Simulated assay, not measured.
Amino acid sequence: MIGALALVALAACGGPPPAATPDEVSRLAAAIAALGPEVNRDEARRAAEISYAHSHRLALEYEITDPPIIHNTKVNLGIKPRGLCWHWAHDMEKRLAQERFATLDLHRAVANADNAFRLEHSTAIVSAKGADYDDGIILDPWRKGGRLTWMPVREDDAYNWEPRNEVVARALERKHGQIVTLTDDQRILMGGAEFVPE
């Protein structure tokens, strides 16, 4: 409750969210390391540090001063440069991918894609190497306006996540009226060519 009040107060002040504390980074590092015995502890620590630092950097870059829905409206009106949920997910995944982790995999997921009553939402996910996305941890800076929200995918009661490429494949089939194939390694094939979503 206090955290929610602090976020409301922060949004009212019109400033960006604060940087993470060392304790926050340590808790995320421990959770990533606990994804499996094969997860390298140094990689888990680096992934946690980058997740928090990049969330803060993006909040400054996106000029976050409002709660997410208000910021989304400003982005859609052209008042702010970026900061929709898919921007956060894309930029977070891209930054973490630069590390070329040997014991961790990165995923993208989408929730509410086919629900006309709820806004679609995107996130980046980190898992142990070779694990499914839903065995991973959500890395979602959008949800609290630039403050990193993380939790195991299966414990997220707010969203029902699906692999992003499954959602994209369904949308392409509807839009183009042709069969879209999703390969075992999550590549999207349409008309014999690979489709690579942003």
Rank of each mutant, 00 (worst) to 15 (best):
M1Q: 14
I2F: 14
G3N: 10
G3H: 10
A6V: 08
L7C: 13
L10N: 12
A11S: 12
A11D: 13
A12F: 15
C13W: 11
G14C: 13
G15F: 08
P17L: 14
P18K: 13
T21D: 10
T21A: 13
P22G: 07
P22H: 09
P22Y: 07
S26I: 08
R27T: 10
A29M: 14
A33G: 04
L35E: 04
G36T: 15
P37E: 08
N40S: 09
N40C: 12
N40F: 07
R41M: 11
A44I: 05
A44R: 00
R46V: 13
R46W: 08
A48E: 04
I50N: 02
Y52M: 10
Y52G: 05
H54R: 06
R57T: 08
R57V: 08
L58F: 11
L60A: 09
Y62N: 06
E63C: 05
E63L: 06
E63R: 01
I64F: 05
T65Q: 05
D66N: 05
P67D: 06
P68T: 07
P68Q: 05
I69H: 04
H71T: 05
H71L: 06
H71I: 07
N72T: 08
N72I: 07
T73G: 04
K74V: 11
V75T: 07
N76M: 07
N76E: 09
G78T: 01
K80V: 10
G83W: 01
G83V: 08
L84I: 14
L84C: 09
W86H: 09
A89Y: 00
H90A: 14
D91T: 03
D91Q: 03
D91G: 02
R95H: 14
A97G: 11
E99Y: 05
F101Q: 11
F101A: 14
L104M: 13
L104H: 03
L104Q: 06
D105C: 12
R108P: 00
R108Y: 04
A109H: 02
V110K: 00
N112V: 13
R118Q: 08
R118D: 09
E120R: 03
E120Y: 03
H121Q: 12
H121R: 08
T123D: 13
V126A: 14
K129C: 15
K129G: 15
A131M: 11
Y133T: 04
D134V: 14
G136C: 15
I138A: 09
I138Q: 02
I138E: 04
D140M: 15
W142R: 02
R143Q: 09
R143F: 15
L148H: 05
L148D: 09
M151A: 12
V153F: 04
V153W: 01
E155F: 09
D156Y: 01
A158N: 04
A158E: 07
Y159L: 06
N160H: 05
E162D: 08
E162R: 02
P163K: 11
R164T: 03
R164K: 05
E166Q: 05
E166I: 02
A169I: 00
H176K: 01
H176P: 00
H176F: 03
G177H: 02
G177K: 01
G177F: 02
G177C: 06
G177T: 06
Q178F: 03
I179A: 13
V180K: 00
T181I: 15
T183E: 12
D184R: 01
D185V: 12
Q186V: 08
Q186F: 09
M190N: 00
E194N: 05
E194G: 04
E194Q: 07
F195I: 15
E198Q: 10
